[in-house]
């Protein structure tokens, strides 16, 4: 296994530092929001992880296409990395959304389009791993995974639109509260925390992505060697 590139080591440290700073900004630097109180601070990481999650899933769909076109296993390795990281971060997104909803609207869950789409999308990518787990042949696994990553990626925005159609018919207090949320006016300090969080999570994404790809490459090497030796 090739030793960790220096650049990646630097990225590892950078990610940790950035995360520390982002946490400080979110927890201390940003002012407490007047209406919801301290819990609003989860918003910075909620959006940060959502951004990472979406990035990964969109990537995965593209990587799926890349694999189907080239049939080169490296795209499969990268695709699995993208989906896995996104699944983890999107899970955090959903839980943070729920934690935020509870004190704000007195419910652990809101059926608003974004959170519901997030849940459905998360299910798609968990299903992705279940599909892969059920197939033993690596080449077929890669092909099917690519097809499903593509189908999943395409369906997610359509899911969002479909759920939004439903909202218009249901008169829900939560919906009204969500409108307020959309128009949340951020002060300058909040904006700093917000954009810094986005930046931090992008760096974290790249760092984890690279690390996970290396793991995938190691796994591939081990599997090849297994076939050769046994």
């Amino acid at each position: 296994m090739t030793p960790k590139p220096v650049l990646l080591k630097i990225l590892d440290y950078l990610s940790i530092v950035l995360l520390a700073v982002a946490t400080y900004l979110a927890l201390v630097y940003a002012p407490t929001e007047a209406v919801m109180g301290d819990v609003q601070r989860v918003f910075y990481f909620h959006i940060g992880t959502a951004w990472v999650g979406l990035l990964g899933f969109v990537f995965a769909a593209g990587l799926g296409i890349a694999y189907l076109v080239t049939k080169d296993m490296k795209w499969d390795i990268v695709e699995v990395a993208a989906v896995e990281i996104s699944v983890v971060f999107f899970f955090i997104t959903i839980v943070l959304g729920s934690v935020w909803a509870r004190p704000a609207w007195n419910t652990w869950w809101t059926w608003d389009p974004r959170l519901t789409t997030a849940a459905v999308t998360e299910l798609i990518y968990v299903a992705y791993f279940m599909l892969r787990a059920g197939i033993d042949d690596p080449e077929r696994r890669a092909r099917f995974g690519a097809v499903y990553a593509l189908l999943g990626g395409l369906s997610a925005p359509l899911t969002f639109m479909a759920i939004r159609l439903f909202r218009s018919i249901h008169p829900v207090v939560i919906g009204a509260a969500n409108e307020n949320q959309d128009k949340m006016n951020m002060t300058g300090d909040m904006r700093v925390a917000f954009f810094f969080a986005l930046f931090t999570f992008t760096v974290i994404f790249i760092d984890m992505f690279w690390n996970r790809i290396r793991l995938g490459q190691l796994q591939d090497k081990v599997e090849q060697l297994k076939l050769k030796v046994m």
Binding site: I124, M130, L131, Y148, S155, L158, T159, A162, I163, L165
Partner: peptide, 11 residues
């Protein structure tokens, strides 16, 4: 596999 991807259709 199908239900999450088919949600836009069903909804």
């Amino acid at each position: 596999l199908l239900f999450p991807v088919a949600i836009p259709v069903l909804l």
